[in-house]
């Protein structure tokens, strides 16, 4: 949370400085009338200050109580030896300090495998989501009849409830009556149905492929490419036509135009999207849990946090795992915020 306080300090200083300069410039007259006007203005200024704070207060209260306070609480919880059933009788004087949770989490079976899975999942999803969004945005760039409807259609996977998406996908991939396996057997010559959601690894043309992991990545790409598509489309609309036309006149191939004219223009928005998608995928719980429950080599760290909390009912290790997760995310987050505040993105 430190950067948010930092932002508050920085922003406040900037606003305060500007207000001070304005006030001294306005108060420089020295005559009685000028003083009255000055007083009126500072009264107005003070009212504005008060109203501004009052109007933001409900938002701050809710976000403070349900986001900032819990973030502080998770730090405290991570150094407690605490089971879920103990919270009813818990009082502040019971709080202790132990690093056992972190030790247990770090040496727990499958922890590092889960870290690797999470990173692979986040990287693959980010790359896939951006690539798909970019390709579709470019394909739908030139106007044609029905383009508006198609663009709207692209947003459907993003808008539908994630549970509806996973339920339909699970049925689609069902080994007994799912359409994908039926097509595979009937038209592609598959000998046996593929259990896409539980199969850890399979040989495809001699190469081992993590089937279940690829399936959850494919789902997340499907669910999230519309957002990339949306942002890239918006940015594409702001690209000036002239440079591109000049490049075409100079004999540049479509690939060259994309590489040297469009891509530099899109670099900013692609950067933002990459960081955001990585952060969101890294912490994704819903999609993986709903599709596989963590089976078949898809146990990501977020699913582990849930298992510790809801299944093993161990608050301490769940919180410790959460803290580690937040720490891991703070790195891309800091990079992103730096870029934002320097006005690069």
């Amino acid at each position: 949370m430190s950067w948010s306080a930092l932002a508050a300090g920085g922003g406040g200083r900037r606003a305060g400085g500007a207000a001070g300069r304005r006030a001294s410039a306005e108060g420089g007259g020295g005559r009685a009338a000028g003083r009255r006007a000055f007083r009126r203005r500072t009264g107005r200024r003070r009212r504005e200050e008060l109203h501004g704070r009052l109007l933001v207060a409900p938002t701050l209260l809710v976000v403070g109580g349900v986001v900032v306070l819990p973030m502080a609480a998770v730090l405290v919880l991570s150094v407690q030896d605490l089971r879920l059933i103990e919270i009813r009788s818990l009082s502040l004087s019971d709080l202790g300090f132990t690093l056992d949770n972190f030790a247990r989490v770090l040496s727990g079976p499958g922890f590092w495998a889960a870290v690797r899975t999470t990173v692979a999942y986040a990287v693959l999803t980010t790359a896939g989501s951006l690539a798909a969004g970019l390709v579709v945005a470019l394909a739908l760039r030139r106007p044609f009849p029905g383009r508006g409807a198609l663009r709207a259609l692209m947003l459907v996977p993003y808008a539908l409830p994630v549970v509806a998406g996973t339920t339909i996908w699970t049925t689609l991939l069902n080994p007994q009556y799912g359409a994908v396996n039926e097509i595979g057997r009937r038209f592609l010559g598959w000998e046996a149905p593929v259990s896409f959601l539980t199969l850890g690894e399979a040989e495809v043309a001699g190469v081992p492929v993590p089937v279940a992991l690829c399936t959850v990545v494919a789902f997340e790409v499907w669910k999230s490419f519309p957002l990339a598509f949306l942002f890239i489309t918006a940015r594409l609309q702001a690209v000036p036509r002239e440079t591109e036309e000049a490049a075409v006149v100079d004999g540049a191939s479509p690939v060259q135009v994309f590489r040297h004219v469009l891509l530099p223009q899109l670099a900013g928005v692609l950067g933002v999207l990459a960081v955001l998608r990585f952060i969101w995928s890294f912490q994704n719980f819903n999609d993986v849990y709903l599709l596989t429950g963590g089976a078949g080599g898809t146990e990501v760290v977020a699913v582990r946090v849930y298992q510790e909390l809801a299944v093993r009912a161990d608050l301490g290790t769940a919180a410790a795992l959460g803290v580690l997760m937040a720490l891991a995310l703070s790195l891309p987050l800091a990079g992103y915020l730096r870029a934002v505040y320097r006005g690069r993105l």
Binding site: A7, G12, A15, R45
Partner: peptide
């Protein structure tokens, strides 16, 4: 114009990105 007005945007980001 009030103290912390620019932080409103930062707050948005914080909540948006916390796991």
């Amino acid at each position: 114009r009030f103290f912390g007005r620019d932080a409103v945007g930062g707050f948005f980001l914080a909540v948006y990105l916390l796991p």
